[in-house]
Structures are given as structure tokens and as C-alpha cells.
């Protein structure tokens, strides 16, 4: 059986909120190393890969592999009932029909309990290759959100160009064009504001802003976001969580002209 308890429901609420508009039905694959999810959007443009390691929970117990087939719209409805600071416990039997969720507000001695019906989801597990990216950019997640929102007003796509001088986000649309350039920036006193660019070779790729703004819903999960780019391969956008857990999005580039 599965039993996994989070100190604050916040993490799970934000993670589900960040992916629910991209994918509808997906399996939460549980085993002794944690809870993983991999799902692709219907148009095959974006892939979500989430790993919540066992260490993120206390306690965590899962004796065998359990796939929880969940409709994310339904899960969102249930999670709305959880306070951000409630503890959240997920429980399921070995061959479950339901996922049991318990929210506890210890200060108020209030316990709420929900059973969410599960579904059978036949999902192909795709292999995500280890990629040596040409450019890896670490930047504040709030800054990335601001850039995608601002450029969305100009165009439906953005070109991300990484060079030794910095990273440039630019968009051209009917009303004109705009760009934002960030240079490497490592303030000693404010590590959350760090912009770091690791570059093995310059790279420029174009992406749909609709998807990128969607990914930015994960912003509350992490102060920093990592963008990994290589020519003609999917962009990886990573929100790192404590203890090696993560929420990653892969986005297909727009190729050709």
C-alpha cells in the first residue's frame, strides 16, 4: 500500500495546478523511491515529468509499484479543499479503486478526508534521453514568468538565444517587436536573483509562448528555474524542489521558416 505524508499541502497543490491545463488524465507511478508522473499534452508539443522523491514525504511507505490513474480536473477539485498549510496524506491500497486524501489543520484540530475515484490509464512510458545541452540558464522563476507574460503581448512565439554575452528573449508580432536580455548576474547577498549561463556553444531556438506561460504556473514551487537548450531538441524547463525532487517540462521547438 501507499502512504505518503507532506508537511504542507502547498507543494502538491502547486504542482498539480501547474500541470492540470497541459494534461488531463495521467498515472502517478508510486514505488519505494517516490511518486513520479510523466504525461504528454494531446498535441504532442509538451511533456511533463514530475518526480517527488520519497524524501519529500515523512513518512513515505510504498511496498510495491502502484499506478494511480487520476483525472487532474477531479484531483484539483479535491485539492481545493486543502489549506496550503494543512498536512496532506495520500493513501492507496495495492490495487486501488480510489486515492484517499487526508488534510489536517493541526492548529484547528480539523481533519478532512476525501476518496477520489481512480481510472485505468493505458500510458506508454517514453524514454527521456540524458542530453548534454548547449546552454543551461538558471534564472529567477519570477523573472522568467514576467518575460513570457510581457512578450505574449507582442507575439505567439519567442526566440531564446544564448550566447557568451547573455540570454536574449525576443518576439516579433503585428504591432512590432520586443526583447529582453539578461546577463550573468550573481549577487552574493541575494542568491535567488542569480542569473547563470553555462554555455558550450551558442544556441537560438523558437518556442510557443502559450506553452511557456503555462509552465510558469509552476513558479510558486521554486525561486529559480533552469532552461536547457540545444539545437533542434526539446527545451527543458526545470523547477527544482528540495531533496532532488523536480517538476520538468519539455517543449518542442519551432523548426524551419
Amino acid at each position: 500500500m501507499l502512504e505518503a505524508r507532506l508537511d504542507t499541502a502547498n507543494l502538491f497543490k502547486s504542482a498539480v495546478d501547474a500541470i492540470k491545463d497541459l494534461v488531463q488524465d495521467c498515472n502517478f507511478d508510486c514505488n519505494d523511491s517516490g511518486i513520479a508522473l510523466q504525461a504528454m499534452d494531446n498535441s504532442h508539443v509538451a511533456l511533463v515529468s514530475m518526480m517527488l522523491k520519497a524524501e519529500a514525504f515523512s513518512p513515505f511507505r510504498c511496498d510495491r509499484n502502484i499506478a494511480l490513474g487520476v483525472n487532474l480536473t477531479s484531483l484539483t477539485k479535491v485539492l481545493r479543499a486543502a489549506g496550503r498549510d494543512d498536512t496532506l496524506t495520500l493513501k492507496a491500497e495495492d490495487a486501488p479503486d480510489v486515492l484517499n486524501l487526508v488534510f489536517e489543520a493541526t492548529a484547528q484540530d480539523r481533519i478532512s478526508e476525501y476518496d477520489l475515484k481512480l481510472m485505468d490509464i493505458d500510458q506508454e512510458h517514453l524514454g527521456i534521453p540524458d542530453t548534454e545541452y548547449a546552454a543551461t540558464i538558471s534564472m529567477p522563476s519570477a523573472e522568467f514568468k514576467r518575460i513570457t507574460t510581457d512578450l505574449m503581448a507582442m507575439s505567439e512565439s519567442v526566440t531564446i538565444e544564448a550566447t557568451k554575452d547573455g540570454v536574449k528573449f525576443s518576439s516579433t508580432g503585428d504591432i512590432g517587436n520586443g526583447s529582453i536580455t539578461l546577463r550573468q548576474h550573481t549577487p552574493v547577498d541575494k542568491p535567488n536573483e542569480t542569473v547563470e549561463i553555462e554555455l558550450s556553444e551558442p544556441v537560438a531556438l523558437t518556442f510557443s509562448l502559450k506553452y511557456l506561460t503555462n509552465f510558469c504556473k509552476a513558479q510558486p514551487l521554486s525561486n529559480q528555474v533552469k532552461l536547457c537548450l540545444s539545437a533542434e531538441v526539446p527545451l527543458m524547463v526545470e523547477y527544482g524542489l528540495e531533496g532532488g525532487s523536480y517538476l520538468r517540462f519539455y517543449l518542442a521547438p519551432k523548426i524551419g521558416d
Binding site: M40, H44, P234
Partner: peptide, 14 residues
């Protein structure tokens, strides 16, 4: 017009 890489095929073959 630019086309978008099909991620399904990408991850299936890689």
C-alpha cells in the same frame, strides 16, 4: 511555415 517537432516521436525514437 515553421513546424513544431513531434515530441512523441522524438522521445519514442531517442
Amino acid at each position: 511555415a515553421p513546424f513544431q517537432l513531434d515530441l512523441y516521436n522524438y522521445f519514442l525514437t531517442s
